[in-house]
Design a protein around this nucleic acid. Structure first.
Length: 894
DNA sequence: AATCCGACACCCA
DNA sequence: TGGGTGTCGGATT
């Protein structure tokens, strides 16, 4: 059962009179226990409670009835009960029929509410159904101000030095910015003496910035030179610390400054850099350096809440549990510390290092927790001198040079801040300078590089955790180079990969890395990787029979602190070697353990629904709508049509109503020219038609699709597909809103032409409406078809042709036809309300709801002799029927 | 020839 | 300006 179903079940329970004997069993049923388990609970064999009237279900809940007004007292009794301690129920619950008191044992949270509110408070009771609530990490406010000022400085420098914007100087410019940022940060947080850097450069560069270039070159050179070798440099540079660390190694140059750029530099150095959040520091710097890409780069960085969706279940949660278990044993804690010291974190799409920084900080925080506890346990005699987590254990691959530099810098800064925390806790830290060791961030194309060369598999028993947010790009939008990258990964491995999203390359490469290793991975991905055609095409090759999904987050909307957010729905998928351990599924604020998560991110065994042109069951063929491919030149709106017909009455015979999803759902009307080949000469008599055909020809001539140029260009009076009905059409919009409780199928007269925004059953029997309009069909479509973000996407090959139906009898078909008609007639009684109005989940009329309910009950009884209990049961039954049918067909073919 | 997809596209409050 | 909700034609099969 999903949370919504549990909510409904609890609401139903709360609406009935309270019976203290029946209540615990009904509560068990409402929290997803099957009838057999409940029967055993009732006959006492599963009931562990020793309280009068009590029911205790292992791990799930402990109930005892309360006397009037005494729910708090009974809750105390439940909490203190020995059996409670032994069997660890998730939830304690008691009621007197008026009040409910409950407690979540793990967190100690309590709930006191009216009995009738049980349904509204379902979230509290989810743990009794094996689902734990989780809260996403909070978004930290970022210092947008600093980034804005950096951007101004950058722009001013480019205005003064246009050549520094060119490709061959980009690296120098990037390096200048990172060095400046490091120095401004260092002088504010105490790595350098207070304000040393800005004081020295502004003292020696003059007011208008005229000497800034030479001053910066001298300063940076000094930081790369040990103090005793600075004879060739101005005397004032002696003051600087020796920094090194790669940041100041290599060529040192700086652009010319002018008055505005010097002013912006002063502005930005006046900011308090202590408050900078290093988690996404890199992205902010990166967005500074490219005015055009500024919004776009910012658009794609991964915010901390999203990073925690990946790193938490990948390894941090498990580490916390281990620390918890070891809390009272010094030896065990030292083992955890040893484990942490060997962990390698690898982000093969690291950008400016957000994931690596967050992972590094998380590990350093846990190290301090462990050391503090060891200190407590040993009475302060612990002798650790220093952190065991080196930043060289953090690996990354990134395509753009500047991002690589900022990633390294962000890790330096994170290390500095972690050291400061360490000092606060233990009173000591090593010297900050010179910078010693660096993260292993490589500049290159992750789909071309050998990942084992970048992040070697450790030989000391260490673990590798691979995480990141690789780029998503559908096949339509990939460049030639990107397609070649995918070919490099998949050629010879997978027969058909050209339709894969770019992100699939990362998933496949990580699967090769993980196999048989002490390593796990988790990536953010576009949700389409786990939907529709990609599932059957990609996932069997990825998982084979030795990998599994260890955890997953179902679709969530992309959000970060950028002003413009990318519009995309994401998932997080964690991969691991097959383990026999439970997998954890996160969905809408709830997590649950399950024996398997399949590639649709459904808690069910692995199953792949393959699109097919031939129906697997006995349903009539469904066609794709008519695809115009004419840049709108054959289409008309209502006014255009009316005007044309007024001026040329004869043109009417070539104009037909034209409908896609929008028109079906909202009841609007568009029209199209519909010219049969044999009528072309007659049609061309009209000047308007000649002009429009000419425009279509021009458009088709310029298409990149050879089929359009060669086959469609000579037929520019017509659409690409040409289908029409003889008697009537049953049409299903392809993309429609997911909040509607039913798919907006409708029936139209034969004059209407359907666009490729709809699927069409031409002249098909009306009982098809009953099937498509059913809850059962919606559940199937929403699971096995693709989505447009979260919108339903109807497909004939994936959804209709694969939909399992029993062999209907004539009587059943007659009943379904009647039911379909009842729905259609009911809609008519609400004329002129549109389908969008009628199927608004908040405003759906009761009689229409009833007609659909009757239709659902009728259809479902043809499957199992009764209505299904919930969507979970619906889906599992459909999966079973599909698998059985495919198995039978394969046997027949063999 | 047919159709799945969109780090979307576009409309409207 | 962002929530609400489906066009349209390229690229792949």
């Amino acid at each position: 059962m999903n949370p919504a179903e549990i909510s409904d079940a609890l609401a139903a329970l709360a609406a009935k009179p309270y019976d203290p004997v029946e209540f615990p069993f009904e509560f068990a049923a409402a929290t997803d226990n099957n009838p057999a388990t409940i029967a055993k609970l009732q006959n006492g064999s599963f009931n562990k409670s020793d309280l009068p009237g009590g029911v205790l279900m292992n791990q799930k809940f402990h109930f005892a009835p309360a006397l009037n007004g005494m729910t708090s007292v009974t809750l105390d009794a439940l909490r203190a009960n020995k059996r409670t301690l032994k069997h660890k129920p998730a939830i304690l619950i008691t009621s007197d029929g008026v009040e409910v008191s409950a407690e979540h044992l793990k967190s100690g949270d309590t709930l006191h509410c009216a009995f009738t509110e049980l349904g509204d408070r379902f979230g509290f009771f989810l743990p009794a159904a094996g689902k734990e609530r989780y809260r996403a990490a909070e978004e930290n406010p970022v210092d947008i101000k600093v980034a804005g000022k950096l951007a101004k400085l950058y722009d001013a420098l480019i205005r003064r030095n246009p050549d520094w914007a060119a490709e061959d100087r980009r690296h120098d410019m990037n390096q200048l910015m990172t060095r400046l940022i490091f120095c401004l940060f260092a002088e504010d947080v105490g790595i350098f003496p207070d304000n040393q850097f800005s004081r020295l450069i502004f003292t020696h560069a003059g007011d208008k910035g005229e000497g800034m270039r030479e001053v910066l070159i001298s300063a940076f050179t000094a930081m790369n030179t040990s103090r005793d070798k600075r004879d060739a440099l101005p005397a004032w540079t002696r003051e600087f610390e020796y920094v090194n660390g790669g940041l100041f190694a290599g060529a040192i140059d700086a652009p010319m400054f002018d008055a505005p750029s010097a002013r912006y530099l002063r502005d930005v150095s006046a900011e308090d850099w202590k408050g900078i959040n290093p988690d996404i520091f890199g992205s902010m710097i990166q967005s500074v350096t490219n005015a055009e890409l500024r919004s776009e780069l910012g658009m794609h960085y991964t915010s901390v809440p999203n990073i925690m969706k990946v790193l938490g279940p990948l390894f941090l949660d498990e580490l916390d549990a281990e620390i918890d278990r070891s809390w009272d044993r010094e030896r065990a804690l030292r083992q955890v510390l040893d484990r942490i010291s060997k962990i390698r974190v690898f982000d093969p799409a690291c950008g400016s290092g957000n994931f690596l920084v967050v992972a590094y900080r998380a590990l350093r925080e846990r190290e301090i927790t462990i050391l503090s506890r060891i200190s407590e346990l040993t009475g302060g005699t612990q002798t650790e001198m220093w952190s065991v987590i080196p930043i060289r254990n953090f690996y990354g691959i990134e395509l753009t040079d500047f991002a690589v530099e900022t990633a390294k810098l962000a890790l330096f800064i994170a290390e500095y801040q972690a050291n400061a925390q360490f000092k606060e806790a233990f009173g000591r830290k090593p010297a900050d300078l010179p910078l010693r060791d660096a993260a292993n961030v490589v500049c290159g194309n992750a789909l071309r590089l050998d990942w084992e060369a970048v992040c070697p598999v450790p030989e000391d028993g260490g673990e590798v955790f691979i995480a990141g947010n690789p780029p998503f790009l559908g096949s339509t939008n990939q460049s030639k180079e990107q397609k070649a990258d995918l070919a490099h990964v998949f050629a010879g491995q997978v027969e058909s990969f050209a339709a894969f999203d770019y992100v699939a390359g990362w998933f496949y490469k990580v699967s090769l890395y993980l196999r048989g290793r002490t390593a796990r991975s988790a990536f953010v991905s576009t949700n389409s990787l786990c939907q529709g055609q990609s599932v059957a095409a990609f996932w069997p090759h990825l998982l084979r029979d030795d990998l599994e999904i260890g955890f997953a987050h179902t679709s969530f909307k992309w959000r970060n602190n950028a002003s413009a957010n990318a519009t995309v729905m994401c998932v997080v998928v964690g991969l691991r070697n097959r383990s026999g351990l439970p997998a954890r599924l996160f969905s809408a604020g709830v997590s649950m353990d399950t024996s398997n998560i399949n590639a649709y991110l459904v808690p069910y065994q692995n199953i792949y629904i393959e699109g097919t042109r031939n129906g697997l069951f006995s349903l009539p063929p469904m066609d794709y709508g008519n695809k115009p491919v004419e840049q709108g030149h054959l289409l008309l709106d209502q006014a255009e049509r009316d005007d044309l017909i007024r001026e040329n009455p004869g043109i009417k015979k070539f104009i037909r109503p034209f409908m896609g999803s929008n028109e079906v759902v909202k009841g609007t009307t568009r029209y199209c020219f519909w010219i049969r080949d044999e009528e072309l000469l007659e049609a061309r008599e009209f000047e308007e038609i000649r002009i429009r055909i000419g425009r279509v020809e021009a458009f088709r001539r310029g298409s990149t699709d050879a089929y359009v140029r060669e086959k469609l260009l000579p037929r520019s009076h017509a659409f690409k597909q040409v289908f029409e009905a003889k008697r009537h059409t049953i049409a299903v919009p392809i993309h429609t809103g997911e909040t509607r409780p039913y798919l907006p199928v409708a029936r139209f007269s034969s004059d209407v032409i359907f666009s490729n925004a709809a699927m069409a059953l031409y002249d098909a029997p009306d009982w098809c409406v009953a099937v498509i309009a059913s809850r059962l069909h919606l559940v199937w479509i929403s699971t096995v078809c693709g989505k447009l973000e979260t919108r339903f996407r109807y497909s004939n090959t994936l959804g209709w042709n694969t939909f399992p139906v029993p062999k209907f009898t004539e009587d059943q078909l007659a009943a379904l036809t009647k039911s379909a008609m009842a729905i259609l007639r009911c809609r008519l009684t609400h004329h002129p309300k549109t389908i969008a109005d009628l199927y608004d989940p908040d405003k759906m009329p009761e009689d229409l709801r009833a007609a659909h309910k009757a239709n659902d009950d009728l259809l479902e009884s043809m499957y199992i002799g009764r209505p299904f209990r919930n969507d979970t049961e619906r889906l599992e039954h459909l999966f079973k029927l599909y698998a059985a049918r495919v198995k039978k067909l394969k046997k027949g073919a063999a």
